[in-house]
Nucleic acid binder design. Sequence first.
DNA 1: AGCACGCCGACT
DNA 2: GTCGGCGTGCTC
Length: 739
Amino acid sequence: MTSPSPRIIRVAVPLPLREALDYLPPSGKAASAVSPGVRVLVRVGQRRLVGLVVESGVSSVIAPGRLRPVQSLLDEAPLVDAQTLGLIRFAADYYHHPIGEVVMNALPGLLREGAPVDAAGETAWRAAPGADPAAPGLARAMRQRELLGYLLELGADRAHAAEALAAFPGDWRPLMRALEEKGLVVREQRPCLAPSPGGGERHVLNPAQVEAVDGIWPQGPAPGFGVHLLEGVTGSGKTEVYLSLIERALAAGRQALVLVPEIGLTPQLLARFRSRFAVPIAALHSGLGDGERRCAWLTAARGAAPIVIGTRSAVFTPLPHLGLVVVDEEHDASFKQQENLRYHARDLAIWRARQQGARVVLGSATPALETLHHAREGRYAHHHMLARAGAARPPTLRLLDVRHKRLDSGLSAQLLAAVGERLAAGGQVLLFLNRRGFAPVLICQGCGWVARCPRCDTPMTYHAQARRLRCHHCDRETRLPEACPECGQVDPMPLGQGTERLETVLAARFPDAGVLRIDRDTTRRRGALAERLEAVHSGEYPLLVGTQMLTKGHHFPSVTLVGVIDADQGLYSVDYRAHERLAQLLVQVAGRAGRAEQPGEVLIQTGQPEHPLLITLLRDGYPAAADAILAERRAAGMPPFAHLALLRAEAPGEAAPMAFLAAAAAALRPRAARTVDLLGPVPAPMPRRAGRHRAQLLLRARSRAPLHRLLSEGLPLLDALPEARRVRWSLDVDPVDLY
DNA sequence: AGCACGCCGACT
DNA sequence: GTCGGCGTGCTC
């Protein structure tokens, strides 16, 4: 006689297991009484783990004798609602990633570790009664004095949380601690997310903005699912469109989710939202403490924050009343996570909007090619805003041919002359070079020896200030060699330019102009970026030097000349997205210049002034360049005309990655039939990194279905390959770069 | 990912 | 004779 199979609870646990594990309900409860979305404590092997119930009241194929009971329930009501659970399940399926690890991506750290949902609150500080920045105790503590002054400025009558303090330049936390110890500020604990002041001024929309707003969300109730591309040049006022759309969503009783690139969530942007809307705004970004993050997340999940604004991972926040999703700078690569679960927040945002009947706005001056393609195929509505708001005129772009020219540390005479003129005229100049450090190569003048990273086989970057060599691909750092280890000749020579050298050279060349460098090296410290951006606006530094960092979202109204030192990196690269990225980069850099009355000028140094991409981009603009690149992609059978998945492998030994991928290809090939191409395996473009050898196998298909079918069937086979145990391997669905 | 089990080398 | 090396396999 067989006993009936018991009803069980399916629990996703934080382990690299493809499936959730089955458990019996805790004593005294029926399985069906434990709702999906509740966190539970379970025993797995010898360990105790926090898991998330993803299904309950179903039967199991596991032998009843092997089922263990759930140890305890951590939530009375589901922490994650059914729709977010649906999103988690979809992401696990689509990216072929263990569901427990997807859950871990979706929850804030504290909740992932089992912390309770009640007692969630945030810390805030108020100035102590009678506290005075001029008090003698602060005579020698200027920064503390500033912070106290700032706190009083925000309002002495109430306490201010980390959110409001984020706009204070630099790291305020140690200063606040010092003020607390002196009794000049008082700390208090308060419930999450007080409403923002709101009621700020509303701009009158121009006709293009009105058309976009009405086209995306006509006055009235929620219009339902639909994706809208808002292609608006820098300065055309996209943010104002977002604000009006959010207003309509809130009026219809719906929540709005705003996704921004990693570097785009500035205190200024938040302040703009706060002053416009008198509602709680949940901001989710990397600067939050654990408690603050839990607070913001829970307020959103309970539907109590009508507006949620955050970076990539905010796409997983439960939003019961979601009506509008804004993805700002939707082309930005930071929406794609490059480790663990390699998801694209924009793509998941569209999926969840469909599921919840929400409107999606994808905003950019330089839309991703796949987005443009969808718009041209009619799947997305397309709105244009081609004019800069106000009187600002668009910048002019010009190529500087640097072939056969003598360059002074990478700078042509023409560019130097232009810089000199602008400085003399009292203008601000921005020079862009996507390479930090002093020089990318250190070479022996005697024998040609180059200092290389022994773990990556790539040249190490010379950092002059630190007097050290650093590998930009791993964390390795060494002292500067005084002599060549091969031939003994002293003083190896730095070759090529980085931002640090540029800064030095410009300071020598224009001794009266202050030079400010903004790259990862000068902004590593918490709050340093905000400080430097502040300094840019002060006008103290007429000459700005920086990397990629400077091209993202920051507006420098008094910059009237932008120089691109080396556009050729993007033209030579083997990556299939290099042209798209270069076009976006040049247009975004150009967008930094001349927002005020003076038109900006952009000078681009290149050794390939006849390159069709540059010609098209400068003559006809981004949309034309995008068309040309799309034509290349179509001819090459690459996205968006094909779908990719990249299988990567790495190991300390040289042979293991290729061996695994060869075995993987052999296992997949019979199932790939003629619908999926298996390209490779080949060594990765960077064949060794941090001491590990790397290789990859590219899977390509004309449509998604056969590719995903192959992956679903094939990945369990790969798990079972003996070669799989000798490597670390991972799958990247829709890879953004093939590194 | 951990953690246990298992089967071969240098140690009190 | 055992302590422990990490290859292999499993977690409901």
